[in-house]
Computed example of a mutant assay.
Amino acid sequence: MSEVRGLEDFWARRTGRAPPGPLTMAERILLDARGLGLEQVLTYLRDWPDFATFAAWIAATAGPPDAERIARYHAWLAGDPVPEATRVRLAAIDAMPPVLDADEIAHWEAHGYVILRGAIGRGEAAAAAELLWRVAGADPGDPATWHGQRNNGIMVQHFCDPALDIARYSPRVHKAFAQLWGRSDLWSIVDRMSFSAPPAPGRPWQGPLLHWDVSLALPIPFATQGILYLTDTAADQGATQVVPGFHHRIEAWLKGLGDADPRAVDLSAEGVTIPAGAGDLVIWRQDLPHGASPNRAARPRLAQYVNMYPADLETNPEWR
């Protein structure tokens, strides 16, 4: 694992063997390029393994490193031009016909979210759904198993599997994000899955209500978030919920609150749920209030979080 530059330094910082400091963009890209989720890595490092043990865990968890992604990460780290394989791949993304048409882009600009229909095939979505059922320890035919001993609400902390990589590295998905960002030199985030079951006696719905995952200190930089539905998802089936168009008024709204906590304001009356089909990807702006809606249907909502970002992603150091 020594061929992946910065990995041992990351291990030293995150196990207290070196001053930790905030997560850097180099660390973010390192983990995504190596096919690892940030949360799963930080959770594993809580036990302070030695580096050899950590490296062995990475190999067992994420498999061998992807040569092109690691070469691209090393080139970025050194300030060198992207490798030829990456250049060719990104040029192919640029040359692709748009996957979001003019009406969909207009909807994005007006409402702050868009649905990429058929981001992956229905068979590919079904394969990821089968993985999620298995990881969640749930049986599709037995509702009694739908509320397992998970301690992250609707979040399922599983990150590494070829079935999940289909969407992460799909050219069609990449093209959609490239259209929204206005650039193709984006990195794919290795993120987790979501299993939102209908409430059961003694097991209330545990999903997050409308919220933001970004600092609300102004200015809020542009970025995206996304969720891929792995099964057909009705509006009452725990579908993603947003407040459409809120990005147009969030700055004035925040200034009007004064010292009040914006995260304590209930915006649920303005929330709109977004039904979509298996393999459809919902993408929204990070300054849009969003969350999973309560599941009032007869079946769980199964989903995978999918997103992309540029290496010069802006963040606000002040948290509000």
Rank of each mutant, 00 (worst) to 15 (best):
M1F: 13
V4M: 14
V4Y: 15
V4S: 15
R5S: 13
E8F: 12
D9S: 10
R14K: 05
R14N: 03
R17S: 09
A18M: 05
G21L: 14
T24G: 11
T24K: 12
R28G: 03
G35R: 09
G37L: 13
V41Y: 13
Y44L: 13
W48A: 08
D50K: 12
T53S: 14
A59W: 11
P64M: 05
A67Q: 08
A71G: 07
W76Q: 12
E84S: 09
A85E: 12
A102S: 01
D103C: 06
A106H: 02
I115D: 15
G118D: 07
E124T: 08
A125G: 05
A125R: 07
A126R: 09
A127V: 05
A129K: 04
G141K: 10
P143Q: 09
Q149H: 09
R150A: 10
N151S: 05
N152M: 12
I154R: 00
F159T: 10
R168S: 03
L180D: 01
R183T: 01
W187I: 11
I189Q: 15
S194P: 01
R203S: 15
W205I: 02
Q206A: 09
H211I: 02
V214R: 14
S215A: 00
I220S: 09
I227A: 15
L230V: 00
T231I: 12
G238E: 10
V243R: 13
I250W: 00
K255P: 00
G256P: 03
L257M: 00
L257S: 00
R263G: 09
D266M: 04
L267Q: 06
A276W: 06
W284C: 10
L288F: 04
A292G: 14
R296P: 07
A297Y: 08
A297E: 04
R301I: 01
P310G: 05
T315I: 14
W319Q: 06
